[in-house]
Design a protein around this nucleic acid. Structure first.
Lengths: 225, 225
DNA sequence: CGTATTCTTGAGCGACTTCAAGTATGGTGG
DNA sequence: CCACCATACTTGAAGTCGCTCAAGAATACG
């Protein structure tokens, strides 16, 4: 059902275009470990103990939850400079996987908390990062109450806001990932891409590349944020 | 469309049953102001500057977003001891309203951040509260990809986990609030309550009171969390 | 007791799902 | 380099769940 895709030409370019080491909150002020993951590599699993916090250095990561009945839900996508793994429990409720060849900076959760206790600036930045994550999750919830066209529209706007180069975005995630993030089927995603293209809202040079000619018009139509 | 309900007998009891002052993260270690709000009173508005952080002392609060096309979305419900207003931007993206007569402890955002910078324990607790809020938002997103029956089932489980007395819950929110939280219409919520009742999954002594006779069975069926 | 409001129920319709092919694309071995 | 296979993506047709529109029942409060 959700089998291994291959590293194709497009995703390889994505992994590459941010290959310069991205310096984020953690890499600047902590000692930790850099880890590399292959396409689809597992970073941590649903149910594993929460011992680390992660920062994407290069590449792209998704968090995934498999429900008892087999349904798959994507919690979020994370790109260079972004933190993930911020669970408040002792067990991860989602697993994390690299979507393309990626590099991740890993620090011990306890060390980070300890350091933040004696470093006010770090504590503030951490708080800011978590507050930002709350907003993103709220936006995610907001997407899920709209029509398929609005969901995909605001999704593309959000992703474009984070990894576009000019007016074009190269999607590191598959249609299935998008479908599982937006709570619709892969067929609906595909049909909706076709509709948006025929309406000239987007262009699709190929399945993984999207061009958004008029982002402000899109924002108005799909009122993202 | 969404007009003012009145303070009825049931919600009055809810406001009352936690009338003992609840001591949370903020009330314990900060100086701030206690504010009282009437049923449906506005605590802050969508678009207003973010200057404070709030803790429910007594009562119940909802956060609400009105989309440009008039649709209404509930971001979350907050009960005694819980924090809200944790926005990462300068403007609130949701407004906050009391659902019943409520008391709220208000502290200046800047003061809190400053204090946290020099008080490691407070910083850690704040981080824990925000991480918990992230989890709740993820759960909210998770609810929105299910069927109406599953949405209402997991919603009732979540609320029961927070404000049940024995196996019964008194809902401070209207059907419209539940509908706008779960992304379905009020008619669907009403019908689904009827279905759950006819299946003996719940009992409804009256519209605002719900009895969950077998919560563990519910958890299995609606696999909440 | 009357009226406003909330909640419930019904019938028809539409958007998304399901099931089922068909097409395109990347990788592999000859 | 090309033929082949596996996988991802697209398209079509029929079914279903939730929405819309409409009315009726229950509840709160003057």
């Amino acid at each position: 059902m959700h089998s291994q895709p291959r590293q194709n030409e497009v995703t390889a370019r994505i992994a590459g275009h941010r290959s310069e080491a991205h310096s984020g909150v953690l890499t600047q002020c902590m000692n930790g470990v850099r880890m590399k993951f292959q396409n689809n590599g597992s970073i941590y699993g649903q149910g594993e103990p929460v011992e680390h916090i992660y920062e994407v250095v290069r590449g792209a990561v998704r968090t995934v939850k498999i429900l008892p009945d087999g349904r798959r839900q994507i919690g979020g996508f994370y790109f260079a400079g972004e933190l993930f793994g911020l669970d408040d429990r002792n067990e991860h409720s989602f697993s994390a996987e690299a979507m393309v060849k990626s590099e991740v900076f890993v620090v011990k959760r306890k060390s980070l908390i300890n350091l933040a206790q004696h470093n006010g600036e770090l504590a503030e930045r951490l708080l800011s990062v978590t507050a930002h994550e709350i907003r993103r999750q709220q936006n995610h919830a907001l997407m899920l109450v709209k029509t398929a066209e609005e969901r995909l529209g605001s999704f593309l706007l959000e992703i474009a806001g984070r990894i576009s180069i000019g007016d074009s975005v190269e999607l590191p995630m598959s249609r299935q990932d998008i479908a599982d993030y937006l709570g619709v089927t892969i067929e609906t995603i595909s049909r909706t891409f076709t509709i948006l293209t025929s309406r000239s809202v987007i262009r699709l040079p190929n399945a993984r590349a999207v061009i958004l000619p008029d982002r402000s018009k899109l924002s108005r139509e799909f009122h993202y944020d």
